[in-house]
Amino acid sequence: MSLVQRIARQGKITFSAHYSALTAGSTEAPDLQPLLALVNELKSSDINLPSNPAVADITPPDSAPAAFIDILRDNHFTIAGFLLRRGSSMPIHDHPNMYGICKVLYGKVIITSFSPPKRIETSIPHSHGFSYYMAKDEGAEFFTAASPCAILTPNSKNLHTICAMEHSAFFDILGPPYNSFENRNCHYYQEVPKTTVFDQEKAKELDGVRVLKRTEQPPMFYTSVKSYRGPPVDVRKL
Rank of each mutant, 00 (worst) to 15 (best):
S2K: 02
Q5P: 04
Q5G: 06
R6A: 00
K12E: 13
I13E: 12
T14Q: 03
F15H: 05
A17Q: 13
H18T: 07
Y19D: 05
S20Q: 12
L22C: 08
L22R: 06
A24Q: 09
A24S: 07
G25L: 06
G25Q: 04
T27H: 09
E28R: 10
A29N: 02
A29P: 12
P30G: 06
D31K: 11
Q33W: 13
P34Y: 07
P34D: 15
L36R: 00
V39T: 07
V39S: 10
I47C: 01
P50Q: 08
S51W: 13
A54T: 14
A54C: 05
V55E: 15
V55K: 01
A56R: 01
I58F: 00
P60I: 05
P61V: 01
P61R: 06
P61A: 01
A66G: 11
A66C: 10
D70S: 03
L72N: 06
R73Y: 10
D74K: 02
D74Q: 06
N75G: 15
N75R: 13
N75A: 09
H76V: 11
H76T: 02
I79R: 00
I79W: 12
A80C: 07
G81I: 14
L84Y: 03
R86Q: 11
S88F: 00
S89C: 10
M90Q: 09
P91E: 10
I92A: 07
D94N: 08
N97G: 08
M98K: 00
Y99F: 14
K103T: 03
K103Y: 00
K103I: 04
V104C: 07
T112M: 03
S115D: 15
P116E: 10
P116Q: 06
K118D: 12
I124H: 11
I124P: 13
H126Y: 06
H126N: 14
H126Q: 14
H128A: 09
H128L: 11
G129Q: 13
F130C: 06
F130T: 01
F130H: 14
A135S: 10
D137H: 07
G139S: 04
A145G: 00
A150P: 12
T153N: 07
P154G: 07
S156M: 15
K157E: 08
L159V: 11
L159Y: 15
T161Y: 14
T161F: 10
T161S: 14
I162M: 15
I162E: 15
C163W: 12
M165G: 04
H167L: 00
S168E: 02
A169S: 04
F170P: 10
D172C: 09
I173R: 05
I173C: 15
I173Q: 11
I173W: 14
L174I: 05
G175W: 09
P177Q: 10
F181R: 12
N183C: 12
N183K: 01
R184T: 11
N185E: 15
H187G: 07
E191T: 02
P193S: 02
T195M: 03
T195K: 04
V197I: 13
V197M: 03
V197H: 01
D199F: 03
Q200G: 05
Q200D: 14
K202R: 13
K202G: 14
A203D: 08
L206N: 01
D207Q: 08
D207G: 04
D207P: 01
R210Y: 09
T215A: 02
P219Q: 08
M220L: 13
Y222T: 00
V225M: 14
Y228C: 05
V233H: 09
D234N: 14
R236N: 14
L238N: 10
